[in-house]
Amino acid sequence: KELVSALYDYQEKSPREVTMKKGDILTLLNSTNKDWWKVEVNGRQGFVPAAYVKKL
């Protein structure tokens, strides 16, 4: 599985998104959309802005 690192804090703005803190390591589930990537963090799945994470 592919991992990404959070470059910035992000506070979810809808139920489809997830909150992350800078430095968090997230499991990348889907990166086909260039703007929003689906990740899993702390057992929750949702979307984060692609520009806020980088692949490890």
Rank of each mutant, 00 (worst) to 15 (best):
N30Q: 10
S5N: 07
K22H: 06
E17H: 07
A51P: 08
N30C: 13
N42I: 04
E12L: 08
V18H: 03
Y8N: 09
V39S: 00
D35I: 14
A6M: 02
P49F: 03
Y8K: 12
E40S: 09
N30L: 09
W37M: 04
K54A: 13
S5P: 03
K55V: 13
K22T: 08
I25Q: 06
V48E: 00
A51T: 12
K54S: 13
S31H: 08
Q45H: 08
P49N: 02
Q45V: 15
Y10D: 00
D35F: 15
K34P: 14
Q45L: 08
F47D: 04
Q11Y: 15
K13H: 09
T19G: 09
I25E: 05
N42M: 08
E12F: 07
L29Q: 03
Q45T: 14
Y52G: 07
E40P: 00
G43C: 07
L28Y: 02
E40H: 05
R44L: 08
D9R: 03
L56Q: 09
E2R: 12
D35E: 12
K13C: 12
A6K: 00
A51K: 14
K21N: 09
Q11L: 14
S14Q: 08
L26C: 12
S14W: 06
K13W: 04
K1A: 13
N33G: 11
K1F: 14
E17L: 05
V4P: 02
N33H: 12
L28P: 01
G46M: 05
K22R: 11
L56I: 14
K38F: 15
V53H: 01
E12W: 06
A50D: 02
N33E: 11
P49T: 01
N30S: 13
V48R: 00
S5T: 15
D24H: 04
W36C: 09
L26P: 01
T32V: 10
D9C: 06
G46K: 02
K22Y: 06
S31W: 09
Q45W: 08
K34C: 11
K54Y: 12
D24Q: 13
M20H: 01
E2I: 15
E40G: 05
L3M: 12
L26K: 00
L29G: 01
V53N: 00
I25M: 08
E17G: 13
K22F: 07
N30W: 08
W37H: 03
S14V: 05
K22A: 13
R16D: 13
L28T: 01
L28Q: 00
A50R: 09
A6H: 01
I25N: 04
L7P: 01
K1Q: 12
G43S: 06
K21S: 10
T32C: 15
N33V: 05
V48A: 03
V41Q: 10
S5I: 15
K38R: 11
L28V: 08
L7Q: 07
N42W: 06
W36R: 03
E40C: 12
P49R: 04
K54M: 14
N42T: 05
W37C: 06
F47E: 04
W36I: 03
N30D: 15
T27Y: 13
N33M: 09
E40T: 06
L3K: 11
L26T: 01
K34H: 11
R16Q: 13
N30E: 15
G43A: 05
V41C: 12
L29A: 02
L56K: 06
E12Y: 05
V18I: 15
W37D: 01
M20V: 10
A51L: 11
P15A: 13
G23A: 03
K54N: 09
K21C: 10
L56G: 07
V48C: 04
T32R: 10
G43R: 04
M20L: 09
K22W: 04
V39F: 01
W36K: 02
M20D: 01
N30I: 09
Y8P: 01
T27D: 05
V41E: 03
L7E: 07
G43P: 01
V48G: 01
M20K: 00
V48P: 00
R44K: 13
Y8L: 11
P15M: 09
A50V: 06
D35M: 13
S14N: 12
E17P: 05
K55Y: 12
T32W: 09
T19I: 03
T32K: 12
R44G: 03
N42Q: 09
W37Q: 02
W36G: 01
L28R: 00
L56S: 08
K34N: 12
K13Y: 05
V53T: 04
S5Y: 15
K55I: 14
S14R: 09
A50F: 02
K1Y: 15
D35P: 02
Y10R: 02
S31M: 11
G23T: 02
A50H: 03
K1D: 10
Y52S: 12
G23D: 07
W36A: 02
K54C: 15
T32L: 10
Q45R: 11
F47S: 03
